[in-house]
Nucleic acid binder design. Structure first.
Lengths: 222, 222
DNA sequence: TTGACAACTGCACTTTAGAGCAGTATATTA
DNA sequence: TAATATACTGCTCTAAAGTGCAGTTGTCAA
């Protein structure tokens, strides 16, 4: 029995097994598609599929990968082996996954599944509301004086009403825009935060609704 | 002209295209292996591979997926919007925990444990750099024209050098500030993004160092 | 020196899966 | 009304990829 060995239920790998295992992992995580036996062989200069298969059966026996028989690209990286896979301590902190809303069409509920473009994780403490929050990417510079730039991701909490002066995501006809909300007698005034732009006047008879209240901004520099 | 509207370059999908697209996404994210044409057909009761193929070619044409010809399971969901994310639920998204740096004293490594004020979780895909990233709360309005406001949280990647013009976290004596970096003959010019402020001149003999390169901003509205 | 194991070569065979061609029904648009 | 797009059936063909069997080489340990 080995003393002071690394804590892990999985049997140790040979060098060859290790590099092939790492390659499979890489392909799965980067390409979202496991390699075929022949692709592995090609990668490592193994001309016979059985050369690869002997290594694979060792990896299966040791529990690092599993395989669906007769299925193309049937390799799977075993869950037990996954933890140590992603090298960096990507702490699974207390994050909340927030959907990024894409195209918004008139009448479509903004959170309808078909509108989702992806999700972004943010700190659950950062956004007090944990539910009914969505994100969307800003286009244009109409809110530049409020520190919201082209390409920023804004967070909004879904709600149908807002106080005068609040920054909202508004749906006008089939378009969503971010503006300050100013209700008036016969319609709504949507005020930009850019002195180069004029307010947008939305008369009562137009298709207008509030999608949510802006509660945060996230920006990435390139 | 659309101002501050939602970005969306992708053409809308039909119901059939949408559900098949969602299925492909699901298979890729959950099984780490894209479905075959026949598997899709089986799932949706389409007996002919060409029934599936007609939908797939529409998805490809509209840019939702791409395909490697003659490759088994050659489908790819466009844009790596598909990490290997688990279902949409709170608490454990694919987040990276980033330390929030508090007071910074001269000479103290900025990431020393005693400087930590807390952590914030952000999406791993949002900040490409997964390592050596820290967060800092901005005080003052000297970067307002770059869309960075008082109270914002900025993200920075630790590094000791920077290119002229880049936005950095600089340590001057015992203070950390966010500014544009401009190296000059006998020192460094730190340029604010606010015409009401003058650049800061740091002569060579002063205690100056670069703490990191600013890579993102996060703001919460109250 | 034998035997187990790892890591192969080489070839044949079978199944899986992509691609091609012809044709149909329906709805929308010009 | 014709043209076009969508969403298929049904079949064939071919290429990709998994499986099976036989044998080789080198290392290490009993």
């Amino acid at each position: 029995m080995t003393v002071a060995s690394v804590s892990s239920e999985l049997a140790p790998l040979t060098d060859r097994q290790r590099e092939i295992y790492e390659y499979i992992r890489k392909r799965v995580t980067e390409d979202h598609r496991p390699p075929t036996v022949r692709e592995i062989g090609e990668q490592f200069g193994i001309s016979s599929t059985n050369g690869v298969r002997s290594v694979l059966s060792a990896l299966i026996r040791k529990g690092y990968v599993s395989r669906s028989p007769k299925v193309s690209r049937g390799l799977e990286v075993a869950e037990a082996a996954v933890p140590k896979a992603e090298p960096l301590r990507e702490g699974e902190g207390e994050g909340v996954e927030i959907p990024i809303v894409g195209r918004v069409a008139a009448g479509t509920p903004i959170l309808a599944v078909q509108n989702l473009e992806g999700t972004v994780v943010v700190d659950r403490n950062f956004l007090a509301a944990r539910r009914d929050v969505f994100a969307l990417r800003v286009k244009g510079d109409s809110m530049i004086e409020a520190g919201i730039l082209d390409g920023d991701l804004i967070f909004a909490r879904q709600q149908q009403t807002a106080e005068p002066g609040q920054m909202i995501v508004a749906q006008v006809e089939d378009e969503a825009t971010v503006k300050y909300f100013h209700p008036e007698k016969n319609g709504v005034r949507l005020e930009p935060a850019n002195s180069a732009y004029k307010p947008i006047w939305v008369p009562e008879d137009k298709n207008f609704s509030i999608a949510g209240l802006v509660i945060g901004v996230l920006r990435k520099f390139n």
